[in-house]
Nucleic acid binder design. Sequence first.
DNA 1: CGGGACGTTGAATTGCGTCAAGTTTTGTGG
DNA 2: CCACAAAACTTGACGCAATTCAACGTCCCG
Lengths: 255, 255
Amino acid sequence: MIDPTSIVLKRFPWLNEEADVVFASSGRTVRQFQAHEDILSTQWPAPGVYAICSGFACRYAVLANGQRQIMGFVLPGDLCDPRAAVFDRVDYSVAALRPVEAVLVPSDYFSTLTGSSASFLRSLWRVTAIDDAIDRQWLLNIGQRNALERIAHLLCELYTRLQAVGLADQQGCNFPLTQTELAEATALSTVHVNRVLMELRHLGLISLRRQRLTIHDDDGLRTVAGFSPDYLSARELRKPGTGRTLPASIALVSS
Amino acid sequence: MIDPTSIVLKRFPWLNEEADVVFASSGRTVRQFQAHEDILSTQWPAPGVYAICSGFACRYAVLANGQRQIMGFVLPGDLCDPRAAVFDRVDYSVAALRPVEAVLVPSDYFSTLTGSSASFLRSLWRVTAIDDAIDRQWLLNIGQRNALERIAHLLCELYTRLQAVGLADQQGCNFPLTQTELAEATALSTVHVNRVLMELRHLGLISLRRQRLTIHDDDGLRTVAGFSPDYLSARELRKPGTGRTLPASIALVSS
DNA sequence: CGGGACGTTGAATTGCGTCAAGTTTTGTGG
DNA sequence: CCACAAAACTTGACGCAATTCAACGTCCCG
């Protein structure tokens, strides 16, 4: 059994030193979730911020008619959801798609840290900024791309993100999502997802079999998808302000 | 000519006292944008955070084939975009749809404030949390709702948000969007948007003519849309931590 | 009063969904 | 290891919501 603390410190490259300490010291609170179990839910208050160590999860919402829209995948190395540190409730649920192992960082730890460590706060902003950029790409994806492009784009996104945390190699990656889940994420029917995957296979771009995705032609897949990976990495952080002075009443704490 | 400072202080109810001062003191930097002019662009660094005083703007992205997806509307009282205070660049553009008047809060001001005032920071988190909730609703909208529901939902959202900043009355609101823009926001064709608007009119739910939206049957429209306005208001903020102690090296500043 | 943006309408087309019937894979317990 | 059931995947036929193309009407502004 691997030490969860070390997993955490390895998987979250964006963490800085102070945050490392918090994660490590709270790293003993490791929780396991079964497939299909809710990790966070709109139904109950979030106990804190979960850092995913292994397994796949997804953020989702259900419409009144019962249709489910998956709004994003939460992979090892991701936080779900940073805002839980600040808000009592989340407005969407997060479910494990496969068995998930996660470190729970209690809200107290997290919010005290965000209140006291400017550099950690900046890291956190960067993380949420990437999350939001992914959300916007999904909107683009579902709004403007056809089925083939959409599926291809999602595969590119997941492959790239898994590479970033060392869970993919040159040939491909472990890929535990069902076609039904792909359908819920791309707003297509499962039948059509199946046909599109067939087409991607026949185009010689991928293989997908037994939870293993093999990329035969990365460039080709990206071209079909119109994928450019920029949005998945942190943008330039603005240099800390040169210190234009604030009215005295505001400059309560200067760094 | 209205004093922009007073506009700002009136339109941004979520501001707290410290931030009021900053906004007021930087409130002299008012900028005008013409219709179709970019307010923020991926092409250049963001000079700071704009607070919209009047006019409509939108966040958008364009695909390689030239299709434009509008990803959100920026209304009077909104910030566009808070993250510009922390990051040099934004990863989408914001354009004025009509002539826009905005207060520029320079990044220095903003980031110093976020670094020093915990309460302002919490306000800002809340604002971005609402923005993100709106984004997720758009994903749901485009992914799971049909054309009629989609348009109805968008009308509900805009009407509700305009009400919140005093720009709508019981009967309806000023509504300067073209059908082409509605189409870009809902990922439909302009022709179909037109037909759907016709249907909403024939159902006796709305009138839309000469930049004026009249809501004849608010409940009916919401029912069609499956609209519930909860996501547009701030969620409960977590009570500040009860003070579980951190390792000394981390608790640099305690509140 | 002319021209360009915006809105309206009809007819033909199509991408994707739905329904329905299989086949293959995975998981479980004996 | 096999037996069996449940879940996941595959394939074909058919239907429809939304698109596309094309023409025409209307408003607004110089």
